[in-house]
Design a protein around this nucleic acid. Sequence first.
DNA 1: CGCTTCTTTGACGAAATTCAAAGCGTGTGG
DNA 2: CCACACGCTTTGAATTTCGTCAAAGAAGCG
Lengths: 251, 251
Amino acid sequence: MARPPIFPLADARTVADDGDDASFCSTCAFSSACLAEGVGKRELRELHVLVDHVGPIAAGNHVFRKGDPFDAIAAVRAGTVKTYVNDADGHERVLGFHLPGEVIGLDGIDGERYPCNAVALDTVMLCRFSFQRMSSLAARLPGLQRHLFRLLSRGIGTAVQLGNDATADQRMAAFLLGLSQRLATRGFSATRFRLTMPRTDIGSHLRLAPETVSRVLKRFQDDGLVDIDRREVELLDVEALDALAAPVLSR
Amino acid sequence: MARPPIFPLADARTVADDGDDASFCSTCAFSSACLAEGVGKRELRELHVLVDHVGPIAAGNHVFRKGDPFDAIAAVRAGTVKTYVNDADGHERVLGFHLPGEVIGLDGIDGERYPCNAVALDTVMLCRFSFQRMSSLAARLPGLQRHLFRLLSRGIGTAVQLGNDATADQRMAAFLLGLSQRLATRGFSATRFRLTMPRTDIGSHLRLAPETVSRVLKRFQDDGLVDIDRREVELLDVEALDALAAPVLSR
DNA sequence: CGCTTCTTTGACGAAATTCAAAGCGTGTGG
DNA sequence: CCACACGCTTTGAATTTCGTCAAAGAAGCG
């Protein structure tokens, strides 16, 4: 499990980009999002030539590790990436689960090193962007610059969300709904999905013991809010979950 | 207490910038930081002409409110700004205390509205930057763009910090040390300083009841870690505090 | 000086962690 | 194909930390 990370491409299996099919990277989230920001299709091609398509990365392999020199950000194309840190006692703290369309590595810009570890939870495909080259391009493409500012700003918002005080039930409800919504945005079912991470990771992410995760999910099940079999989830009563999660979201 | 916010300058007492003294805004954190990023002095002047010097803002007045249209970020020049949100139950949650040299408003870029409230805890002076104009400038000044990316990235990092799991003692130690370090960076004493916020706010920030804040501080005092009189703090045993705070910081 | 706001203190209670142990699935090797 | 081992999950009981409630004390302010 101490294999080297995939970044910085020293040992990566990289799929070269054809560069001539703009829709090829549509799941990168950059293409569509940048179009929405007013980046023209011609300019979009400029962005695509600086993309490395990375993967597949098997579950358990690291994309990057805390302390690695920062040189790129990446959009998840398929699979789930978990970011985490270890505190001084060695306890793992999960910062986030990153689904297709989401971007990882932004927090590494400041310190020029990645401040956390990123590991694949299942088979992962990535689009890797040299940050230096993307910055240069952003200076010429206002839409791209705007998109990057937005992504970073959003990153603050999502990080802030995690700091909330709330009961175990409320945090869990918010977690399930958050997953649901993010999956729905990417075209997956909003009500049936698979938890790609173990209970331990969910707990670490929500500041709960894994036992508590198990108990809360059981109670949700008993109360008819969800149907859970192992890692398969079906949301049965979104209304009730919403009501539970309400205090987590700011007014 | 329902007075209108200072932004967007509708009602603000704004001090016009002379524009001809680059050192005038040295405490904005932008000047020195941007110089470090390779922005030349001539270019720096371009940045200064788009600065509004705002203030003084009296304690209790809002700089902006959640939902206000986002159009500017601001660097604190003097005083302390508290950012906070109210959850669905009306409970206040303090996101941060912003000291001189620190920047507020970055989290508003994404949604085009400020996602939180910002209020002065004491007499506050600000440098206000039109974000639109700063973005345009950033396209021409790579150093400025880099600085903005860094600021945003750092914002993610500090927000992530708050999500930590830790005991009340550990969080409080980390909070005191964090304040100490940030004040020291700005030239203030690292060991003696004033808490500009009530216990309630500290608690809300650290996810603790104000009573717990009081008890923890008392214990720190009894154990000789700090000397606290009302809101005046002296750190007596930084080593011990560091040891306490260790699990909060990622390894 | 009297009000308000903030802070401290104590007693109690609740939510979640910890500890311990038993199920359950999956994959592997005999 | 089955048995076994390993990791993950569930469950129960005891413990602990912190929040809640109540009230008194202190400081600042008009």
